[in-house]
Write a protein that binds this DNA or RNA. Structure first.
Lengths: 157, 157
DNA sequence: GCACTATTACTCGGATAGTACGTGTCCGAGTGGGCCCGG
DNA sequence: CCGGGCCCACTCGGACACGTACTATCCGAGTAATAGTGC
């Protein structure tokens, strides 16, 4: 069970973008060079964020990516879901259907006790992610390093 | 981010084994045919459970797998960790090291704010898994289908 | 000086290879039971 | 009848292919700024 490292890239990028002027778009190449990331691959992940409405992409000169809405309304769950997709990590294959007494018309993803237990845990995970926003992260970073906003802002200019 | 389906197999198998006599071992082939699973592949996962001490394996005639300890002391987290490994789904690659002001001697897996936020969520997930045991699942199943214990017991004889 | 237009450089976007991990399978080592033989 | 030893079938365990999903890259479509031109 491995999460795409694109999630890490996406989160850092969103925080960085939250320090720029809301109207200004930053090209993927600029965002990538901050962490020495492969530009094209980061771009691929940013496209996913754009499809989810987290970012807004603009083509042409002076184009690039900018935040699609207020950082306080972008949860970590939003970003993770945009990159990883909406499916749960634990997929109930409903093996009870192939077992004794298995009914083809029953949705064991809901009725199977084990499936329920695993879904309960994943719900706790998703809840914890949904409780934290990009704005929360940004605020914590600023408290630890007050120079970060201006430095990042200058770097992405 | 996809969890191995071996987790599902392992959990069902552990519950089934909890209904058999503690002293009796059940071969992997018998355990597999209950859900029409590929024997060799299930066996591979059961080996992992045995290495973790969740199951005890016995070779030779009348051999097989049996629970290594009381079902009440086997948490879902134990099983998941045995199959999936101890690593977190989110692996901080410490991209801050390659960013501006990155220090090579700093462990950003602990200091990075984003890493901390993701770890917080995974901790919630692990906690939820650790709160549920094989005995809990077994009890719920028995309440819904009182015939399950004896039926399974007979099937694995 | 100003408006319009054609050019041009810039950016995203999806289509295309490479790689690692999860999936699936097989055969050999080891073990315990059961049968045979002798006492 | 009983004990011991040998044989054999059974089971796990690790080593070996296959498929899928993540990683990485490239080139083309579209766009907006810009420079040039005519009025």
């Amino acid at each position: 069970m491995k999460m795409s490292e694109g999630v890490e890239w996406a989160l850092h990028t969103c925080v960085n973008l939250s320090w720029t002027d809301p109207g200004d778009a930053v090209p993927a190449a600029r965002l990538a060079e901050v962490f020495s990331l492969p530009t094209a691959y980061l771009s691929k992940h940013l496209q996913a964020l754009a499809r989810a409405g987290i970012l807004i992409s603009t083509t042409g000169p002076r184009g690039g990516f900018r935040l699609g809405r207020d950082p306080a309304s972008i949860t970590l769950l939003d970003v993770v879901t945009a990159i990883e997709g909406p499916e749960d990590a634990f997929r109930c294959r409903q093996i009870l259907k192939d077992g004794p007494g298995g009914r083809p018309d029953v949705d064991y993803r809901r009725t199977c006790t084990i499936s329920q237990a695993m879904r309960k845990a994943e719900l706790a995970w998703r809840t914890a992610l949904a409780e934290q926003t990009i704005a929360d992260v940004r605020r914590t970073v600023e408290q630890r390093d007050p120079t970060a906003p201006e430095a990042t802002r200058e770097r992405l200019r």
